[in-house]
Design a protein around this nucleic acid. Structure first.
Lengths: 239, 239
DNA sequence: CGGTGGATTGAGTGGCGTCAACCTGAGTGG
DNA sequence: CCACTCAGGTTGACGCCACTCAATCCACCG
């Protein structure tokens, strides 16, 4: 059940047979969520962390004044709230943005695993560090890039992450998010997202219809977004 | 030498005598930096992590186009690049914003510590998780708050963090950052920071002269920034 | 075939960036 | 002790990116 996680960790550092075995044996309960349902709510103290098996989920921060922002997007293989193992109470909601399939891993098991297998502990820690690196990249983008750049950057990032999760076909992947949701991610209003997207399409950088994105010109898209993939830590290193 | 760190960790969970002893015995080299000097550079793979003993430091992301953004601010007791233990190469610079005193802790020691003392490992992990929580808060602010709100929020956050580090006197603390630097933090231009600051001062929310901030009306300042301190995890919990 | 969520288009406005001076206080050297 | 320097703070003018309000269109579905 945790195979998507195993695959992801193995991209960052070699796993030996024992470690794979330990991960495979972790019990977990599978749950399904409909779009809009909450996997976790702000203020809660969950006794487990949720590993995404399928679908897209987002971390939602409610801001005083009714506005809300999506501070992270997650896909297959991502732990959406691994940090709830230590960070309590939850500082944000986690919401299913599409239909989601989730494996709930008990915190007691995760804690035991980290005590008995320091290398796996490091890889889980690393996973939260990559989350943080992505947060930094997004924050820098919000401060320094305008909407077109943020949009291009987002598409580049999600394509690479989807690719790492085995979810791409050639130059396209499924991204069933409404323009309104995209706006909540990149900090832009719905109308402006729409116009910006049209302009990017008109330029021939990508196609985006019915929740399917096809990248037509990676070079120019990456340039528009100022995209540098190093922060994703998709390379294999001893950790 | 690591006392500021010990104090900080002890605010989040009880440390027993053995743990304190272990932390106290960690060897570290002390270094001093002048304002503008780099503690670490993007792309490097440092063999140690830098613990701030005094002064203010910032994590700087260079964005294509010559712009730069400060994605995190650090003060006494903060590990400015603890994540470099696992996240390589560095995805950003760390720069001394004022004169800084730093203790460099070798990675091999940190790694040994995490393997032998799982509870301390969790507290270090937690420290990086709080960093991430702050990133989320800032990112949400950049997306949803306007400049006055971001400025107010920043002052509230830094006051509480300075207080936790024992750096406040009554309602004031030292914050020797230029308005230009503040702009790089909250994603605003120098001129606009200046005008916004004047308006906040005129409203009687705070004084800010010569690198010293005095908070005059916490209530309204927190309201203006939509400030909710929970994300700082300044509470004591079993971790 | 009406209902509904999402995409699209138009128009008006304001927050905030940028350029460009000018002011102020602290430190320095003669 | 004063002239000079320089970083940082302050002020004014101008323009654009992006937000908001408000329709309208479109695809899909029961």
């Amino acid at each position: 059940m945790l195979n998507p996680l195993i695959g992801k960790l193995a991209q960052r550092d070699a796993l030996d047979d024992v470690e794979r075995d330990v991960l495979e044996r972790i019990p977990s309960r599978v749950r399904h969520y409909a779009p809009g349902e909450h996997l976790v709510r702000q203020g809660e103290r969950p006794g487990h962390s949720a590993l995404l098996i399928g679908g897209w989920a987002g971390r939602i921060k409610a801001i005083a004044g009714g506005r809300r922002t999506i501070t992270a997007l997650h896909l297959r293989g991502d732990f959406v709230d691994l940090h709830s193992l230590l960070l309590r109470p939850m500082d944000h909601d986690v919401e299913a943005l599409t239909a989601c399939e989730v494996a709930e891993v008990p915190h007691e098991r995760l804690r035991a695993l980290t005590e008995e297998h320091p290398h796996l502990a490091r890889l889980l820690w690393l996973d939260t560090l990559v989350d943080a690196a992505i947060h930094r990249e997004w924050a820098a983008g919000l401060a320094a890039r305008q909407v077109a750049g943020r949009l291009a950057h987002l598409v580049c990032e999600l394509f690479l992450r989807a690719q790492a999760a085995g979810l791409t076909e050639d130059d396209s992947f499924t991204l069933p998010l409404s323009q309104n949701t995209v706006g909540e991610v990149i900090g832009a209003g719905l109308v402006h997202v729409n116009r910006t997207l049209q302009s990017i399409r008109r330029e021939g950088l990508l196609k985006w219809r019915r929740g399917r994105v096809e990248i037509l010109d990676w070079e120019r898209l990456a340039q528009l977004g100022g995209f540098e993939p190093a922060y994703l830590n998709l390379t294999r290193e001893p950790r």
